[in-house]
Design a protein around this nucleic acid. Structure first.
Lengths: 178, 178
DNA sequence: AAGTTATTGTAAACCATTTAGATCTGTTTA
DNA sequence: TAAACAGATCTAAATGGTTTACAATAACTT
């Protein structure tokens, strides 16, 4: 609310019109309509996820919360709840640990985990798109056979080229995981 | 055993010519040429894997070994070693636990985990083939970009139809995990 | 058959994640 | 607006799958 121009609010730290703020609103609405409460920790966690956009580990998310916000266990619980709502998407680190990524409306993204640098990058959109098709197709067949509650998990692993330049050419965002 | 002919080896309990026996030979040769020793536990584990052919959990494999064969930890170690040799393929249960499947020459198989019955089935060959293509294609692009040691992980989850008949129509083998 | 060295057994450590029970806090209601 | 009902969180401890340390054992080598 307020707003109009991002600009004339001197001490406007919450920036009500920014995409992030809107994303947060959307997320909170989803929580509300699912009958879940809008709590301090949940807001903070959502903000962290939205800010990062790339997958993050539970520890990492917890670490980003201003110390006093909440316990690690709460992060676990919130993310489990968010996942059930489809608010976040879960993927996996090469050691098997869970990573979570905000999932607001955008099409599913797939990741490549760099085992050398411990970072996670996104597959570029065209590849992701194509893969997404293939997966959907298979899921459809499974559903046609009577399977319900169908989901899938896809992860790529590898060692990234050493030269940052090459990595840039990927056009893929990368984020280090702890 | 004592099979009606299969050949004429009266008390031939090890059935030297059976596909399983041959598979075991192949596996042992691979161990040997990798400089690993052919031990009691390893043979027993390989036999169990070959007999089952579908993915099995570590506990499950260990349970199938005649009590005195070896420790659970040894099963862990052997499977890790086998995986490194490419002798087994690893996939995942919906709780994140590892499952291992023998992998002798056959093309990669993909699985659907039934969250209701706790069983794992194989995707039928055509679907698997198709998916395998799609994955290879993406991996190729990653390699072209300089990634090395590239691998992937794909798993489907769902709840299988209640009627066994439907399940049979899948034409897919199913095996319960624990 | 003896020696070497990988492999195994045992016990304990690890780590991510989950649970139990008490307490707190959003949200609803009066 | 205050009381009251869940739902959510905190703390601590338990789980469960997997790994490690180190001494004992058993494959392979000669």
């Amino acid at each position: 609310m307020i707003s109009a121009t991002q600009t004339n609010h001197p001490l406007n730290e919450t920036d009500q019109d920014s995409p992030s703020a809107i994303a947060l609103q959307v997320a909170c609405n989803r929580l509300k309509s699912a009958g879940l409460r809008i709590t301090q920790p949940r807001i903070a966690i959502l903000e962290a996820l939205i800010k990062r956009s790339l997958p993050a580990s539970i520890e990492q998310i917890h670490a980003e919360l201003s110390a006093t916000v909440c316990d690690l266990v709460t992060v676990y619980r919130c993310l489990a709840a968010f996942e059930e709502l489809g608010l976040v998407r879960r993927c996996f680190f090469h050691n098997g640990a869970s990573l979570y990524q905000i999932a607001l409306a955008d099409s599913p993204s797939y990741h490549i985990v760099d085992k050398t640098s411990n970072s996670v990058g996104e597959l570029d959109p065209e590849l992701a798109q194509e893969l997404s098709e293939a997966m959907r197709k298979i899921e459809q067949k499974l559903i046609a056979r009577g399977y319900t509650d169908v989901s899938h998990l896809v992860e790529f692993f590898g060692r990234a080229p050493k030269h940052p330049i090459d990595r840039m050419q990927n056009g893929a965002l990368m984020a280090e995981i702890r």
